[in-house]
Amino acid sequence: MAMRSIVARWSWALLGVLLVLGLVIGSGVRLGGRPPTTAQRISQLDHLIGCPSCADLSVAESNASTAVAIRQFVAKEVRAGKSDTAIEKAVESSYGAGVILRPPATGLGFLVWVLPGALVAAAAVVLVGVFGRRRRRGRSGGPVVSDEDRELVEAVLRR
């Protein structure tokens, strides 16, 4: 029994190591903090800017003439060494703030980013609180049931 549990523990540890290994290889982390390439930046910006003349799509996904013009502008500016923020600002100054598909993290837009997380956190706190109270109550009250007891009962129930 003890042997088995040791084997199990080691096998889980091995699993963990392999998982981390796989994720590190696969995430393609830029170890030297290499900045994204020009092509990556252009693609990111293209996915961020909405096509002004088509519903829901980014300029990366559309071949409407406005989208093509914006893509050309973005490529030109990135190659000219402009920052992402500057390029976003330039597109906004022509088409308005609504052209950026990602809501801003400032002003009212802040709420749309924070509310879901806050709500989940609050719900999680409530749930944890409920479990914590139960467990404490369980300890002071009724009989203490150990894992072994449970195993025994389950084994009996299985027959």
Binding site: P52, S53, S65, T66, V68, A69, I70, Q72, F73, S94, Y95, G96
Partner: peptide
Amino acid sequence: GDYAFRYGVR
């Protein structure tokens, strides 16, 4: 399409 872009033509 540069002018259209500057003028925000949809």
